[in-house]
Nucleic acid binder design. Structure first.
Lengths: 271, 271
DNA sequence: AGCCGCTTGTGAACGCAGGCACAAAGTCGC
DNA sequence: GCGACTTTGTGCCTGCGTTCACAAGCGGCT
């Protein structure tokens, strides 16, 4: 994260990071607690949640930090620390109750309510996104699609009719859209972004390879395939340089690679 | 960075398992320089490259760190430091020559050669990816598609015929695939990953929401739409808490028990 | 030529995140 | 009921990445 970064943020989030209050206002639990969760930890909480859901479906009722950390591919100490950010829901000597933990993580991640999603730009990607009717992890129903192409307007994609981007303000308000996904060509991205923001959308997932300019109160996350590919390319090149010592010996060592290496902008990577 | 007096290869402090390089290797400045580039900086280099390319197309010949940093949405000091990792190609008092810098960044990112890409899983996302014939930023031609569905085998998508995943070893070797993209349902991801790795692919871009287990020499980057959405959701929730103290309280729509884990997530750009 | 202003490159401080190790806290067995 | 064992929660240290601030270097102007 995208890593990140993740990270690094990410590589991308809001440019200006409000450095929070120098003096912790006493202990207003609710707000401070939520604010205190590091971005990287939030990303991992989502991973834990997936692992927990899987365990739950398998009928597992209790899980230790060690087990869960393996499933999530992280260090167990890190996992415990991450969980401690949201409270103390474990039982020493036993572990965590899967059901309880799922509930708490969902609460923190704001998954107790649905977040309607609008996808702008119904090209290849937009099409693919619209067809994820279930959308990953449920709780994020796509309820609106936008484009500028007259041929697309009115045509339903994945069961949802495409509206013209001029209708963004009204549709966003009507359907209570909280998340906007930009899947347009780069040239249109900023324009679309501005329209979404004007319509009241405060969270944007941007697939276009542009750095969006947004007000401070808007949260942007960026997914950039070109960057991902180039990072991989970098590692290929780096590897090629190392050709001298210890060549391609390394057989399929399926063993546990205990190295918890790098991590970027929210996107985990395992060398 | 480390002005190591003696080449102390020995473990210095913690007796645990140092994730350091197994073999001390030498310290050839040239190679070490590449290795010394922080992961986060690599991600940004890709962003800079895009901004530089844009400038170049506009006929701009020289750019200052200040200008470029604005275009890339980062701090100018950070940009200069990032660029310093790859060498000193700027001219004090003037700035950077756009053409030269593009060349150097491309060199570091290994973009002087083409990287053939294979996409596994021709569902919604795989389809979208395959149709990016140009693929983002070019230099990453998709030359192979794989799936298990007999109805898809042989059918060309985006000009490339789909092969059965049993053919991975041969096709990967024949077409010199260096990057594998996993766009399968989560249940198949690890299996596909193993096959790619066995076939010699060392870089994988994973769109499936699973933590892949791979040998140390394989580089994996993960793009997880569900995680991205949940992070955004978190920020919505945090924001809501800041205004009014609203506790859990079920949302308006109870949303029937969602379907089980949905599919993969997808993403790209330039639809 | 010499000065001046601009921009790079980087040393150093700072802050945050990661990992270790241990005390606290609970369970299980006897 | 008590001790031994298990596992959580966290203080502390370490290392990385970001930011600041400034000296060094280069071009242009006089």
């Amino acid at each position: 994260m995208v890593a990140e970064p993740g990270q690094g943020d990410e590589v991308v989030t809001t440019p200006a990071e409000p450095p929070a209050v120098p003096h912790p206002a006493d202990e207003p639990a609710v707000r401070e607690r939520a604010r205190a969760i590091p971005e990287a930890a939030v990303a991992r909480l989502a991973i834990y949640l997936r692992a927990l859901t899987e365990l739950s479906e398998q009928g597992v009722g209790t899980v230790s930090s060690e087990e869960l950390s393996i499933a999530a591919g992280v260090n167990s100490a890190k996992l415990r620390k991450d969980l401690s950010y949201i409270g103390s829901y474990g039982t020493r000597g036993v572990g965590y109750d899967v059901g309880v933990l799922i509930g708490q993580v969902e609460r923190i991640l704001g998954l107790t309510r649905n977040h309607s999603v609008a996808v702008v730009g119904i090209g290849n990607l937009g099409h693919a996104l619209a067809n994820y009717n279930g959308f990953p992890g449920r709780g994020f129903p796509v309820t609106a699609l936008f484009d500028v192409d007259p041929d697309l307007i009115g045509v339903p994609v994945g069961g949802i009719p495409v509206d013209h981007i001029d209708d963004i303000p009204q549709v966003v308000a009507d359907r209570d859209i909280t998340i906007g996904v930009i899947a347009t060509p780069p040239s249109a991205a900023q324009e679309v972004c501005d329209r979404l923001v004007s319509a009241g959308v405060q969270c944007i997932l941007n697939f276009a390879p542009v750095v969006l300019q947004v007000p401070d109160h808007v949260e942007v996350r960026k997914v950039d395939l070109a960057v991902e590919m180039q990072i991989l390319s970098f590692h290929v090149a780096r590897r090629a340089d190392e050709g001298s010592t210890e060549s391609t010996a390394a057989g399929p060592d399926g063993a546990v690679n205990g190295t918890g290496m790098s991590e970027v902008d929210g996107m985990v990577m395992r060398p």
